[in-house]
Design a protein around this nucleic acid. Sequence first.
DNA 1: CGGGATATTGAGTTAGTTCAACACAGGTGG
DNA 2: CCACCTGTGTTGAACTAACTCAATATCCCG
Lengths: 249, 249
Amino acid sequence: MPTPPRTAQTPCRACPLKKREVFRAVTPEELAFIEEFKTGEFIADPGATILAEGSKTPHLFTVLSGWGFRYKGLPDGRRQILNFVLPGDFLGLQGAALNEMQHSVEALTTMVLCVFAREKLWSLYSGYPSLGYDITWLASRSERLLDDNLLSVGRRSAVERVAYVVVDLFSRGRQLGLVTGQKMRVPFTQQHMADALGMSLVHTNKTLRKLTQSKIIKWQSGYIEMVDEKKLMALAAHDATAAQLRPLI
Amino acid sequence: MPTPPRTAQTPCRACPLKKREVFRAVTPEELAFIEEFKTGEFIADPGATILAEGSKTPHLFTVLSGWGFRYKGLPDGRRQILNFVLPGDFLGLQGAALNEMQHSVEALTTMVLCVFAREKLWSLYSGYPSLGYDITWLASRSERLLDDNLLSVGRRSAVERVAYVVVDLFSRGRQLGLVTGQKMRVPFTQQHMADALGMSLVHTNKTLRKLTQSKIIKWQSGYIEMVDEKKLMALAAHDATAAQLRPLI
DNA sequence: CGGGATATTGAGTTAGTTCAACACAGGTGG
DNA sequence: CCACCTGTGTTGAACTAACTCAATATCCCG
């Protein structure tokens, strides 16, 4: 079914705000509003800063394609990657709600972003509450990711952290169709992974090496492969919920 | 598990959902809706579990008074406190959005919570989009807290972490009128602080001791005192944003 | 007054860090 | 086409911040 050509480059039917259509159909009016809500598209090159800590952007973004990451820095240069940004993620809400960004977002690959005007956000809520609800849903989902990361960084060992982040990326990647067999493209360096896990680069490397030698994962030329998914999952030390479910066998 | 709520005692004029009235007046209709939205009140005793990881509560809560904490656990007992819960916080949204709770919430003191029915959430969005907007605002604010914590746990040293969490608690406490002079009641143990900072109990204690001996803070009989706020702030190693702002003096 | 929970302290251990050197790949200009 | 350069990955060695274990002190509550 070919999409009719319009002014905007990407059809809003693909918009993540519409994502929940699995549960709820988006009405034609809603779709029309989404299209009007959209200001345009923004193509970010790898390495580009999309949002900067301390700035006040008038924009909201939706990621249509590509990878990026959200991070915060300390004055002396240390930085913590808060989470990786993938298609379907909603960016800049904090700027709208809190006025000023408290974190930065940088592109890892070329990214295509759908741009919204921040001041239209309110009209979205008032005119199309269902879409407002969806935004809350997205916010809630991203908070869940953060919770998981915090648990990892705060309480998991190095091996567990690496195992967990791989499992997590594959889980997100699968939902987005980014996984082929047991392989997924990961367009970041070990430094990025280290910054995401709150570890040093060297130790991240040594940990990865250990997992490679145990034939559990492989990370070559930009692709991570889960060689032994079972062992990997076991190492990942899942949260108490998962643990609760297991004993029921 | 929460006991069935009773009839409402607290006027909804004090509701955190109305908090943003500084910026925006709440209309009488909205207030009426809030009161209808409210199912009742829930009094939680210290140590009570308000929400449990893996469960599906039909409730949403707003904290009217008292302290609690949100946490996640690992199967072997390690646990990470995600953040402390104070009056004005909104709880359980994840359960509504994601169907199942991915974290637990426990009371530290007696807590008074305003209870909402989850299934009314949608009618709140559709009928009173401004309130829906407020919920998004709350979600966004709590995500900011999480970002800060993750930066702390991932990249700050032990002293910095302790300094930062104290500064942070005072900042939140001030907004809520919980700070008297330089003192604030903190109804938790060093174990809680350790779990929040991703550190061991012993090392947390030793770090606190160091800060006490340097006459920077004092923690006695349930009260933390900022003895030398300036030094404490300096130790806290604020984020890059704060650093950007300082040179402007 | 007793007992359990909390806090404090010392000693020994270790997971993770920093430093430093080297390997390797891709990309550029001569 | 090669020589070089820069970014990335790999590895060893030395160091240290934070951990665990364990004993003792202190507080709080009934």
